[in-house]
Design a protein around this nucleic acid. Sequence first.
DNA 1: CTTATATTTGCCAATATTTGTCAAGACAAT
DNA 2: ATTGTCTTGACAAATATTGGCAAATATAAG
Lengths: 97, 97
Amino acid sequence: MATQLGDKIRELRTKQNLLLRQVASKLDVDTSIISKMERGDRPIKQEQIAILADILKADKEELQTLWLADQLYNVIEGQPMADEALKSVSKKMKKSK
Amino acid sequence: MATQLGDKIRELRTKQNLLLRQVASKLDVDTSIISKMERGDRPIKQEQIAILADILKADKEELQTLWLADQLYNVIEGQPMADEALKSVSKKMKKSK
DNA sequence: CTTATATTTGCCAATATTTGTCAAGACAAT
DNA sequence: ATTGTCTTGACAAATATTGGCAAATATAAG
């Protein structure tokens, strides 16, 4: 199952002609890990997002948002009450502001 | 940290003068677990919600919604991009409908 | 086709997280 | 002080997650 952040990272990386290996060394993990991250097979750690944004010259906040949206989607995917729960949480957010 | 579902369960249980022990036996866990569930110290399993609804004569869907909202809140709590991510996911939901 | 390079995949052991149970403690009522 | 309910922390067992390796597969070039 693909993720928004994974897709984005792959898009950025290939457009800049970077190899998995090059990103991997900066993130200090095996190339296979990056491959899996991009394909949505392995979760991306939140601390890695800033590093990725640096390497790929991307906006940190944008990547963070994609990451968060992926996390949320994992929770609600396939849940019948997803809509209601989302509304409820949005409401709660407005209050705490 | 309190949860919406935990609070609701405690409310329903006490209003019906049920003891932790009574709920525990039906759920087949130690009373300490129920205590922690109600106080938000231990996560509630999704499979347990239907049973809880039965015991407490509550609406299953309502409890499910509270449970989901709690899960979502866990993900976004303390996240700067929470608002944007929520909007993004809501949008995605509408499409897949 | 063969070689060279890049990516993907399956599997493993190490690590981390989660689980339920138990025992001790807090608290109130009597 | 005794009883009954609830809370809390510690513990080990079970489960999940992690990164790396190596084999498999793809991609590109000659």
